[in-house]
Amino acid sequence: MLVDLAAIQRNFRKLAQMTSGTCAAIVKGDGYGHGMREASQALQSIGAQLFLSARFEDALALRADLGPGPRIAVLDGVSPADMAEARERDIIPVVNSLEQLHVISAVAKRTAQRIPAFIHLDTAMNRLGLASEDDECAEPLLASCSVQAYMTHFASADDVDLDLCRLQVSRLTKRAKLLPRAPLSVANSCGVFLGRELHGDIIRPGKSTFGINPLADADNPMEQPATILAPVIQVRTLKKGDPVGYSCTWHAPEPRRIAILAIGYGNGFMRDNGNRGSVVFGCLRAPVVGRVSMDLTAVDISALPETAVHVGAAAEIVGGTITYREVAETVATNEHEAIIALGRGCKRFFVNGGAHA
């Protein structure tokens, strides 16, 4: 997996220019499979000053990598057992429940210091965040916090459900007016493209920073930073009727040539690509035949010139021809899952690490 850090930088700059407020760097899921550490350092080098991870351990790694300057927040919040270390390392919790808010209030009383925190107000997701009925109890406890922002998360911005998005913004705004004053953080990647009325003061574009298309039915306005290649380790000639792979789910309908690639579901190339996906050599496609194994995948190269594929040749899994979206749709998932899986399973190499483009 080859990751172009300059493309990530350009994506972030484009998103930041779309808002009049702050653009946060969302680097959860190991930077959506692209490498949290390297991507975060590249983003910091062009001015990103607010980073959000999902897990506390990732926030600690970010602090070690980025140094004492930027704000780093944990979307899942910080457990009572980790609160002391969070304070020591200047990690900001996102408060998702009254229980978490009580913990922060207790720490604030014990240390005689207000605790920086983002306050998540649930407005439709019913996942994380304070419910509206929690606000009365939350209001006095918030005196113990230095509230960085009130945040909510769009439930259906991906589906361009503008009515629900506007309702969520309205709910957030009304609730925040009754609480200690602080900025609002609203738009995710898809929300950023639905207009500034839905942005709030801090936007949180995660997937679009990493090249995942934020538009449901349009060409991707972002750059895909990753190219994933798999080497050919064997070329075989099959007779008519010869099977390929576990359970013999594909048989050669006539004499065929196949190439065996050193990639499989152990590398994040999902098993459902079997008899469904394809790869590219140059600009020529080769369909996956048979089941995808843990470490190996077979592709039919019969339609390609014999000189086009040989041991050591590289097959494009993701790149200039095969988009993130195509990889995901082939196996009936979203781009997040497909690219994170490949990022975890494939060895990563980084280019343009010092670029400020």
Rank of each mutant, 00 (worst) to 15 (best):
V107C: 08
V107E: 12
V107N: 01
V107K: 04
A108L: 05
A108S: 15
A108C: 04
K109M: 10
K109A: 15
K109W: 08
K109I: 07
K109S: 13
K109T: 13
K109G: 09
K109L: 12
R110Y: 04
R110P: 02
R110I: 01
T111D: 14
T111F: 11
A112L: 11
A112M: 09
Q113S: 11
Q113P: 04
Q113D: 09
Q113W: 01
R114S: 10
I115M: 06
I115V: 10
I115N: 00
I115H: 00
I115D: 02
I115E: 05
P116G: 04
P116L: 02
P116V: 01
P116I: 03
P116H: 04
P116M: 05
A117R: 06
A117W: 05
A117P: 06
A117K: 05
F118P: 00
F118H: 07
F118E: 07
F118A: 03
F118M: 07
I119P: 00
I119E: 01
I119T: 00
H120C: 00
H120S: 02
L121K: 06
L121H: 06
L121N: 05
L121Q: 03
L121A: 04
L121T: 03
D122V: 02
D122Y: 03
T123N: 08
T123L: 07
T123E: 05
A124G: 10
A124P: 00
A124D: 08
M125W: 06
M125Q: 11
M125I: 09
M125L: 12
N126T: 10
N126C: 09
R127C: 06
R127T: 05
R127P: 06
R127Y: 03
L128N: 01
L128R: 03
L128V: 10
G129W: 04
G129A: 08
G129H: 02
G129D: 08
L130W: 02
L130D: 01
L130H: 04
L130C: 08
A131F: 14
A131P: 05
A131C: 11
S132R: 15
S132H: 12
S132E: 15
S132W: 10
S132P: 10
S132Q: 15
E133F: 14
E133D: 15
E133R: 15
E133Q: 15
D134Q: 07
D134I: 07
D134N: 12
D135S: 13
D135Q: 13
D135H: 15
D135E: 14
D135W: 14
D135F: 14
D135G: 12
E136W: 09
